[in-house]
Design a protein around this nucleic acid. Structure first.
Lengths: 151, 151
DNA sequence: TAAACTTAGTCAAGTTGGTTGACTACTCGT
DNA sequence: ACGAGTAGTCAACCAACTTGACTAAGTTTA
């Protein structure tokens, strides 16, 4: 059958993330919503981001971004500190708990990949990764793909 | 690098669907929200579904399902008809416009796959489809994966 | 170096897409 | 033929956003 690949991508991703969320919940990280994942993702690569930056990356208003940050701060995943030079601004950083959660997600993803390697073999998995990288790059057409709300 | 495959699935799917939505909008189907896609998907395989059935499949309450249907009916994509035997119930069916929209999506997906075949070759694409099918089945662990809100 | 402009964040109100709960009308099994 | 269950509706509520107006701090420019 042809034309079903996009759906297959979605279904696979969905199944993985359902599993990850179940595991996270069992390990005490049950209070993270899908949208939070994108905050974590961004903060782990931009450790001193501001709320406005975060909003731009997530494609939401600054007000919504601040609300997300407040919620995560209340739950102990992030911390707001005064900006070193700009007194209007405050930087958002992951706390130890925030980092721990990020670590768990990446560990679970690696675990998933190991499982997949067993299923289809290292070679096929390598080809899969390589091909998907090419397809994603082509589909994105040079634009950055924001990795936004999906899970 | 290892552990990035789940993200790669998401990014690829996201890029494809962004493209599809852009094209749909340009062809006069600009008034469909992501959630509608799942309604279409379900109705195209269950042509005489009820609102309650739809709600169960989408994982939302029947009230939310009815609201979705009303919205799509207002825009001419679906139609509500009396149920042939059960006078409490009404069946929801795609209109000509609804079917046209579904056709366009599947055509755009096929087009995407043809493009991908050019990029990585028929063989690799076949392997990709085969492997992803296996991984999805394994990740789902026997459970049906509902193909719910993602786009 | 002061006036004009821009930017980070806040406050408040409105919108949207859902929820739960209570209800009516109908169906079905015994 | 009646009691339990089901399809759909109405109404009230809630969460996650939005838009718009604002303050305070920073930046540019003449």
């Amino acid at each position: 059958m042809s034309g079903e690949l996009p759906a297959l991508l979605a279904v696979t991703f969905r199944a993985v993330m359902d599993h990850v969320h179940t595991r996270l919940a069992a390990e005490g990280f049950g209070d993270v919503r899908p949208a939070h994942g994108f905050v974590f993702q961004y903060l782990s690569f931009h450790p001193e981001a501001t709320a406005v930056e975060l909003g731009e990356h997530l494609g939401v208003t600054k007000q919504a971004a601040v609300q997300l940050v407040d919620e995560l701060a209340r739950r102990g995943y992030v911390e707001r500190r005064p900006h070193p030079t700009d007194r209007r601004s405050r930087v958002v950083a992951l706390t130890a708990r925030g980092w721990a959660c990020v670590e768990r997600v990446t560990a679970l993803w690696r675990e998933t990949e190991r499982r997949w390697a067993e299923l289809i073999g290292e070679d096929r998995l390598g080809a899969l990764r390589e091909d998907l990288t090419a397809l994603a790059a082509d589909a994105a057409g040079g634009r950055p793909v924001p990795l936004r709300p999906l899970w």
